[in-house]
Design a protein around this nucleic acid. Structure first.
Lengths: 163, 163
DNA sequence: TATTGTTATACTCTATAACTATA
DNA sequence: TATAGTTATAGAGTATAACAATA
């Protein structure tokens, strides 16, 4: 069965899971970034704030290792968050080379807002699906993530996927 | 129920579909880009080649409109593909302002390879799932894509989602 | 000597706007 | 005048390597 030159051949969704994952995932990321703009926060800030909330006082080096980014990048990211008064840097008294990172009061507020925005984002994204279908989708995605050893806490970003 | 400071709270997959979609989607994109490198082709080239294959002779302007990118970017993209002898630019005889884009022989070869790589990518990505589960996942994703009016032919890229 | 954080630098990607040649 | 393609330029984002302070 042929298709004419101007018609793309139809492919069933089961044969396009790779494309659909990539496309819908990109859409989810973009939409989330747009919602975050309301808080004057970027997607890259989210992981940072969450890490600092989970483990207050950690150093920039350990943060860099946890997130899988280069230490010099953490400098720029923390600079921005400190400027917005979301996190604080304080020199450690036991090792004056290191900076202890903590959430500032405004940082805690923003994290609460982030959770609200996350729920709204989620609801909008899968509005089309029933509760049961959302569960099914979540479980299938979690299994794929686990099979490829993706960290449930860390979003890899999109370093090699531009275009 | 509380969690200790160093432990992230557990959230069921159904409440993390947004994160999982974004994370698995990014992984899919990155992995696909790595596989494409074997052909010396970038993710951004794929859509271009497919459009030119589907509609040979189209102009750079219409290509830009179809892909939703700015014309000056098409120049750079086509430059690269022409340098690798995957596409040809020929001045139109009816309107000498426009360039007609066609696949070169090597471009047709590369597209065949791309289809093979796409299948391998697909199989590896969802290796964890049964045939039935792949269908389920594909259908759920296709419904989400349709609900948000994503074009089945065009990948939006990751313009606003960095970090 | 080794490590933490920082800065300097360079490179990539991309959009905007000015430019040219054709219509 | 308007349009197709191109080029020049500038900005964002990021990695690498050199550096100062501290251990």
């Amino acid at each position: 069965m042929e298709t004419t030159a101007h018609e793309a051949p139809f492919r069933p969704p089961a044969d396009r899971v790779g494309f659909l994952l990539s496309q819908v995932g990109a859409f989810a990321s973009t939409r989330f970034a747009e919602r975050l703009a309301e808080l004057d926060v970027q997607p890259s800030d989210v992981g940072l704030l969450r890490m600092i909330a989970v483990e207050p006082g950690l150093s920039q080096q350990s943060l860099a290792r946890k997130l899988g980014v280069v230490p010099s990048r953490v400098v720029a990211l923390v600079d921005a968050l400190e400027r917005k008064e979301l996190v604080t840097r304080t020199r450690s008294t036991t090792d004056r080379r290191t900076h202890e990172l903590h959430l500032a009061d405004r940082g805690r507020d923003v994290m609460a807002q982030m959770r609200r925005i996350g729920r709204e984002h989620e609801d909008d994204l899968v509005a089309e699906l029933s509760q049961e279908e959302r569960q099914t989708l979540g479980r299938l995605l979690a299994r794929i993530a686990a099979a490829h050893e993706l960290d449930p806490e860390v979003h890899p970003g999109y370093r090699a996927s531009r275009g």
